[in-house]
Simulated scan of single mutants.
Amino acid sequence: MSQVRVRILGVGMGPGHVTPEAAAALRSADYVLAWDKGDGDTGLLALRRAVVAAHAAHVPIVTIADPDRDRSPELTGPGYAAAVADWHDARAARCAQVLGERGGVAAILVWGDPALYDSTIRIVERVRSLGVELDYDVLPGISAPQLLAARHRIVLHEVGRPVHITTGRRLAQAVASGQDNIVAMLNPDGLDLSAVADWTIWWGANLGAAGEQLVTGRVGEVADEIAAARQAAKAEAGWVMDVLLVRRP
């Protein structure tokens, strides 16, 4: 196998969020690795193509068919962790094959920031464990919580107070544990917000991309508006990713 270098690049939500450092790294790559979820050149693959076209049009994109993943909504705890681990193993195996065959410098474009609710770093480490000789570096990007705060013109926490960042699946658990200022990411459709009905919410979908939507207010009063805005974002872009901040009054 050839020696490989992997550049893990945070790209926020599109071409306008790519830092000069990440753009230079992208231009230095021999190719970009991108997951194809079976929707052709639509959705997030199209957005990756837009990033490459804007900053490194000469760099080819090599697509890899994304393995199936168990996304059953009833999965919790160990079952969810096992499903994600299986998916990561399958992704790593497919990456290892391509990287081992092509060698050179590969760039992987990560939505938001690679350090926050993204598993690219873990997958690249798995690739190394499969015997691919590689080195890698990581360049940061604009994260979803940063975009949410900027769009709503807020600070994510009160003066001297913490902010708890978790996933939508664990929102109720965070509330039950006493957290009172919570950012939730990776939210499923129909997320149950009943535990925070009296709290204030700052919500956004597809921030910085097509179909951007923003809603704020008391949760119990704007829950239907959020559901409609989420569907509108998906209808316009073909995909939806949302993030929210809820704060106890």
Rank of each mutant, 00 (worst) to 15 (best):
A237D: 12
A223M: 01
G77H: 09
G217L: 00
R5Q: 15
M185N: 07
G16L: 07
G14Q: 01
G77P: 03
R94H: 06
D224P: 01
L147P: 00
D118H: 08
A209S: 15
A93R: 14
T76C: 10
V240S: 13
A24G: 09
G100K: 06
A107H: 09
E225F: 00
A205P: 10
A82V: 02
Y31A: 10
T120K: 05
V110N: 04
H17D: 15
Y117W: 06
R5C: 00
P73C: 06
A34V: 02
V127I: 13
V246G: 01
R151E: 13
V18M: 03
I108F: 11
A227S: 13
D135W: 00
T76N: 12
V51K: 01
D86C: 00
T42G: 15
E236K: 10
A96Q: 00
V51F: 05
Q3V: 09
D41F: 01
R91N: 11
V32Y: 03
M241V: 13
E236T: 15
A235W: 08
R128K: 14
P188S: 06
I226P: 09
G131I: 14
N206M: 00
V132H: 01
R128A: 15
V110C: 12
W199T: 07
V84S: 14
E221K: 00
P145A: 12
A54Y: 00
V98M: 05
T63W: 08
W87P: 03
A184T: 03
A83R: 05
S28W: 09
V105P: 07
W199L: 05
I165D: 03
I154H: 04
A197H: 14
R5E: 15
A23T: 06
E21A: 15
S28C: 08
G16D: 12
A232T: 14
G220I: 05
A65H: 10
M241N: 11
V219E: 04
V59M: 10
D118R: 03
A115W: 11
A23K: 11
D86H: 12
V138K: 03
V62C: 12
G104A: 09
Y117K: 04
R153E: 15
Y31H: 14
P249Y: 00
R71K: 12
